[in-house]
Amino acid sequence: MNGQAAPRWQAHCDALYRQHAARLVRLGRLVLGDKQEAEEVAQEVFLKLIRTYEGPVVPIDWAAWLTRVTINACRDRRRAGWWAWSRRHRAPEMLELVDGGASPEQAAAGAEFGVRIAAAFQRLSARQREVFALRYIEGMSTHEVAGTLDLSEGSVKRHLFRAVKYLRGALGEIKGDRGHR
């Protein structure tokens, strides 16, 4: 790479990082259910971004590219044997079902709701988590989700509806528990 091109690509990569890093960590965290893993995935994705930037074919829509690469990196992790093993052998609190940073009062009140919803979300299938995160958290259309995940729109809708149904049920239970206290 010549001396003039370096600052330009670096500036663009920096801008992409600032714009998308938090979003990709959040997406990875929802799909994998693990903050540390999600941060590692985001780092991997940005390394890939630099390599792709130097390559012959540069994507037109970097945001969509980053989302797709993040989802693929999460899938690769899920497929790895060690990942499944470590998840089986880790305590539930390590999988971020419990918020370690909140004070006991916060955990008992406001944060508990989010924690329980997140726990319910982690009980969805991997595909349902991906579809829900892309559609409702990332704000993609059903068509875009289908394109990102290489699925048909009908399949996306099916997964999405099941996820919504399950999460609404969990929300009802949580609200019921709160009402009884």
Binding site: R26, R29, K35, E39, G114, A118, I137
Partner: peptide, 10 residues
Amino acid sequence: TRALRDHASP
């Protein structure tokens, strides 16, 4: 959506 976004946000 809000709960998940807040919970997972870094």
